[in-house]
Simulated assay, not measured.
Amino acid sequence: MSETLSAKSMLIVVPDPTTPELARTLDLSGYSWKAVNTLIAASEHEPDGGWAGAIVDAAGDPEAAWAFLRTLRKQPASSLPVLVLIGGAQLSELTHRDDLFDDFCLTPFHPAEIEARLRHLLAGDVQLVSSDLVQYGPLSLNLETYQASMAGRPLDMTYMEYELLKFLAQNPGKVFTREILLSRVWGYEYYGGARTVDVHIRRLRAKLGEEHAGLIQTVRSVGYRFGESRWES
């Protein structure tokens, strides 16, 4: 386990033992972490500064993983950032469970994706600084801080939600198939298939809000297009 970061940067990893691939990725990225199976064990090993976040691997034993997260979210300090790892066939399990996690990643995963998602997940409240911006009407994306806002309202998005929205906003009016979005946004051979895109689009629309959900339009039998919403009418 790496000790290069402060106690505040320590992560809970579920279950114990974790997979060699995840352990290697966390160690090489410089994260301190502790593998546990229960919240009692997490409490016993909690550092003075508290846990920074949790990684829950639901690919092996999904029932135990979701049970752990349901219990976690019932705790007084239930705002702990959570990254869930799932297999491609488990994407349907995310439905109606958005409140149990903050971001998800499909396994097998690319180490660079885990690192990027953790950086975004643990970034905290970073003040906006002068940087390159992508703006479309009331939507603003800060390319340097990975922050987004709609009409001045901050949007709480996962790393890949942000990357997908950024790509679409940088190409307004163009229609993209799910396969092209997978290739251009995820950037390597991805195991989730088209269903991954649909899940992220659904979550993006919910976070944009009813008034602006129409910014992402479904083009029947083709894919998606970033375009008009009610503010343009």
Rank of each mutant, 00 (worst) to 15 (best):
H212I: 10
E189Q: 14
A42W: 14
D125T: 01
G60A: 09
L22V: 08
A58D: 01
A58V: 04
D57N: 15
E228D: 10
M1H: 11
F101P: 10
T218M: 05
E210K: 12
A169V: 03
V13M: 03
A77K: 14
D99S: 14
S221A: 08
F226M: 06
L39D: 10
K74H: 08
P15Y: 04
S9D: 04
W51I: 03
P20T: 10
L133N: 00
S183H: 11
A116N: 13
P62R: 03
S9Y: 08
E163V: 02
R178L: 06
K8Y: 05
Y162G: 12
P62K: 01
E3V: 11
D57W: 12
L122D: 08
K174P: 02
D27T: 13
L5V: 02
S32L: 08
W66M: 09
R24M: 09
I12Y: 03
G124N: 04
L181D: 08
W186H: 07
D57C: 14
L11G: 00
S130N: 11
L83V: 07
A151H: 12
Q90V: 03
E210N: 06
L165C: 02
G50P: 00
V126C: 00
V84P: 14
E211D: 07
M160D: 12
V84E: 08
K8V: 00
G60Y: 03
E161Q: 15
E163H: 05
A194M: 04
A54V: 01
W66D: 10
E93P: 05
F167Q: 14
S183R: 10
W33A: 04
P81M: 02
A67K: 08
S183M: 05
P17L: 07
T107Q: 10
R117N: 06
L208G: 11
A42T: 01
V197Y: 07
G173F: 02
T71W: 05
R184I: 01
S32Y: 00
R70F: 11
T71Y: 10
L94C: 07
L182M: 13
A123S: 09
L22Q: 10
H45Q: 14
D103H: 05
L122W: 00
